[in-house]
Amino acid sequence: MIRFIIWRILQCVPVGLGISMLTFLMLSLVPGDPVTLMLGQHVSPQIMNNVRQELGLDLPFFSRYLQYVWNILHGDLGRSYIQHQEVTTMLLDKIPITFNLTFVATTFAVTAGVLIGVLSAVKQGSPWDTFTTGFTLLGISVPSFWLGMILQLIFGVIFRILPVSGSGGDGFQLQYYILPGFTLGFASMAMYAGLTRSGMLEVLRQDYIRTARAKGLSKPVVVFKHGLKNALIPVTTHAGMDFASLMGGTVLTEMIFSLPGIGTMLINAVSRRDYPVVQGVTLFLALVFVLVNLLVDILYAVLDPRIRYD
C-alpha cells in the first residue's frame, strides 16, 4: 500500500508538468495581446514594448515556459498582470472561500441525497419514490444561475433571513454559504439520491439483509447498519471526485453570490488575459484533482478490504 501511495505521488510530477505545459501552450495560442488588454489603446508602441519586455512576453515560447517552470519550482507563481499582486497570495486568499463553499455544498448534497435515496429505496414504488425520482431529474436539469437568483429573491430579498451575497468578511460564517452551497450542491444532491437509491435496492435484495431481518433486527438497524453501510461505498468514493469537480465548477455560483473565490479569480483572469493567474489557478485545480483521486483510491482499499493495490 505504501509503495502504491509513493508511486501515485510520483505520478503527480509528470501530470503537473503536462498540465502546466498544456495551459501555457493554450494561453499562448489564444489570439489577442495581453499587453493591449492591460494598457488599453492609448499607449505608444514604445511603452507597449517596454511592458512586453518587463513581463518577458518578448521571449520565445520555450524560454518563457522554462522560466515559468523554474519559478514554480521555487514556489513563485508570478505576479498578476492586472492586479499587480503575487498569484500565490491571491490564491491563498481565495482558496478558503472556495473550499468553504465546496464543503458546504458537498455536505448538503451527500446528507440530503443519501437520505432521500434511502427513503426512496425503502419505499420503492410509493408516491414518495415517484416524487424523489422526479425531484432527481429536476435537480440535474435546473440551471444553477436560475436557482441561485430565485433563492436570493425568496430568502434574501423577501424574507430577509439569509444574506443575498458576499462571504461576510474574515472567517467562516455559515449563513453566507447556505444559499450558494445549496445552489452548487443541488445537482449533486440529486445524483447522490439516485446513486444511493440504486445501491440500496441492490443491497436490500442480498441474502445477508434477509438473514438480518430473519434474526428479528429492527427495520432501522437493517436499513442503516447493514444496508446503507454497504450501499455507501460507491457514494463515498464518488463524493471525493465530486468535491474536486465542485471546487473547479464554482465559477457561476461564486459570480451570482459575489463570493471572492478562485472561480471569480479565474473568470476575471481569463477575460483579461492575466496569464500568471490563469496558469496558477489551473495548476492548483489540477493538483486538487490528482490528490483527491489518490485519496479516493486509498479510501477504496480502506472501505472494501477485497481491493488490494499491491
Binding site: 436570493q152 434574501g156 451575497s165 461564486e254 459570480m255 459575489s258
Partner: peptide, 9 residues
C-alpha cells in the same frame, strides 16, 4: 460580478 445580484442586495 453580476448586476442582478447587486440589484437584489
Amino acid at each position: 460580478k453580476d448586476e442582478s445580484t447587486a440589484f437584489n442586495e
